[in-house]
Design a protein around this nucleic acid. Structure first.
Length: 272
DNA sequence: ATGACCGACCATGTCGGA
């Protein structure tokens, strides 16, 4: 049986409901993971998602900043929220799905919003970059990583705010000192990924030699013409799910929708 | 730095995004 999972940094879920609705109607993923919902849980538009068929909702939001959510057509068995860097800043939620009714495996889905890291790529000068590096250190040690490496069916998605490979950015050379592609954060990112033995699902469909982006800056006059994007959003699968991903789609056209997010949805269909 | 932007908030500027 197949399960399609989408991830999308929505940059305010309440403001973006018209395009969320459009996306869900057109693509009908089973599960949608959102980041940067920017709302306390009591103001999350639950009823609108229910009307669209997404009755099962797990929230970890807060006022104004960050915030992650999972909305699902399949029942959510349980959920958990991890803290990173001793902060309550709503950057993670995990949900468990139980096998049955067409799902042949249990699995855990982690939804992350990793700190952006500010402008200056120096942890001594920039506390936001220091926070990002600490977050990556904790990611390496976290239970999700251990569980994935030790055989639990796990999928990790989200805005990880790092473009690790040369062709995950428009110009590797010009981006080496730009936060999201600096060697120090890419190294920590890769070490965390390797320690969980995570599979880079998106790159399983598109070779490393090809450009792959999920984000285009709001500042470009014409995002499509300049096409200076980055792959900041990721889908990882545990080694136990090797071969389970059947299809992957980056909905680049959503960057051109009305009042868009600067990130676009990534959808992966898994055989589970 | 490509960057002439975008969103939330006790707002008319400041912070965070990346």
């Amino acid at each position: 049986m197949s399960v399609s999972i989408a991830t999308w940094n929505i940059n305010s879920v309440r403001l973006r409901m018209p395009i969320v609705r459009k996306f869900l109607k057109q693509h009908e993923p089973d599960i949608l993971c959102l980041q940067e919902t920017k709302t306390p849980d009591e103001f999350f538009p639950r009823e609108e998602f229910r009307k669209l068929g997404y009755e099962h909702i797990a929230l970890h939001g807060q006022k104004g900043y960050h915030g992650v959510a999972v909305v699902s057509r399949r029942p959510i068995e349980s959920l958990s929220k991890d803290r990173f860097c001793d902060k309550d800043d709503a950057r993670h939620i995990a949900v468990n799905f139980k096998k049955g009714k067409g799902l042949s495996e249990n699995f855990t889905l982690h939804n992350f919003y990793i700190p952006a890291g500010g402008d200056i790529p120096d942890p001594e000068l920039n506390p936001k970059f220091a926070h990002k590096l600490s977050f990556l250190d904790e990611l390496l040690q976290c239970p999700a990583n251990r569980d994935a490496a030790s055989g639990r069916n796990s999928i990790l998605v989200g805005d990880l705010n790092i473009a690790p490979l040369e062709n995950d950015v428009w110009s590797h050379k010009q981006m080496l000192k730009v936060v999201s592609h600096t060697p120090v954060e890419v190294e920590k990112f890769t070490r965390a990924q390797e320690s969980g033995r995570w599979i880079d699902v998106m790159r399983g469909f598109v070779p490393n030699e090809e450009k792959l982006y999920t984000w285009w800056s709001y500042r470009a006059a014409d995002w499509l013409a300049s096409n200076r994007g980055r792959r900041l959003d990721h889908v990882w699968a545990s080694p136990s799910l090797q071969g389970a991903a059947q299809e992957m789609k980056i909905l680049s056209k959503a960057r051109g929708w009305e009042r868009p997010s600067d990130h676009v949805p990534v959808i992966v269909k898994f055989d589970l």
